[in-house]
């Protein structure tokens, strides 16, 4: 498998995976979405809630706030069955009185590394005399259990192939201009396709309207893979974590056979 990084920012990674199979790309995608562990609020204890919304509503909103996750210093809850939860959960508390809007920046955490991805997420609006006082636990979880534990989104598409008969195609520039996303270009008398931009909308083949001269197809061995996280960790960390998890699964099979 050949991997090329097309664009790379903290939360988004675009890759070209070449000379591989859909099963590989799909395994990576599914692991990324469903199994990369991230922190989210799980158990909330309310000491006081005189806001207009019920406890469940506040707890749900609190859980949806993505927390920056440090995978190195936290373990799955099962690892702490002996009663010492310091390795498995971070304590979170809020104590705010109105009139004010409670933001994610008002969340106090026991571990400074576990904090909301942004301080600007509004959690609750309070009027004068209303108060919220709560404690909560943030634990590691999987996306397959609840969306609050989903690290982000990943998806892929096949490469698009062009089968063109250049003796029959007259005006290449017009064919290139027919592309609504600007993925087609003419270079040295041939059509060149930008795989990342192409959405396989078939607009160009409708424009030519002659299957003998111009036909689009799929290359089922190459993929444009896009991975995006919510900021709990960088996209690169999340991809590497998914690769590691696939590897661990296969290795556990090897040791059992």
């Amino acid at each position: 498998m050949k991997v090329t990084v097309v664009s790379h920012s903290d939360n988004k990674l675009t890759l070209l995976l070449e000379k591989t199979k859909p099963a590989v790309a799909n395994a990576l995608r599914r692991t990324f979405i469903a199994e990369v562990p991230v922190m989210a609020v799980k158990d909330v204890t309310f000491y006081e809630n005189t806001s207009v919304m019920p406890d469940e509503y506040v707890a749900h909103r609190l859980a949806m706030v993505p927390l920056k996750t440090d995978l190195k210093s936290y373990k799955w809850t099962e690892a702490c069955a002996n009663g010492d939860y310091s390795m498995c959960s971070a304590d979170i508390s809020i104590d705010e009185a109105g009139p004010k809007t409670v933001y994610s920046s008002d969340i106090k955490t026991s571990d400074p590394k576990i904090k909301p991805i942004s301080g600007k997420i509004p959690i609750m609006k309070l009027m004068p005399g209303q108060r919220i006082r709560l404690e909560a636990k943030a634990v590691l979880g999987k996306g397959e259990d609840h969306a609050k534990w989903q690290v982000g989104l990943a998806g892929y598409k096949y490469f698009t192939t062009i089968k063109a008969d250049y003796r029959k195609l007259k005006d290449l520039k017009a064919v290139a201009a027919s592309c609504p996303v600007g993925a087609l270009k003419v270079r040295e008398g041939k059509l060149e396709l930008d795989q990342v931009k192409c959405t396989h909308c078939n607009e160009c083949s409708h424009f030519v309207n002659d299957p003998n001269a111009f036909k689009l197809g799929f290359d089922r061995t190459s993929f444009v893979f896009v991975a995006e996280t919510n900021g709990q960790m960088t996209a690169k960390e999340a991809i590497l974590q998914s690769v590691k998890m696939i590897e661990d699964k296969i290795q556990s099979m090897q040791s059992q056979l």
């Binding site: 949806m64 509004p122 959690i123 609006k125 969306a147 982000g152 995006e228 919510n230």
Partner: peptide, 16 residues
């Protein structure tokens, strides 16, 4: 009600 914290469909955090 309050502003949404995540997208209902894809789960992207957008409350901020």
């Amino acid at each position: 009600m309050h502003a949404p914290i995540r997208c209902f469909t894809c789960g992207k955090a957008l409350g901020q």
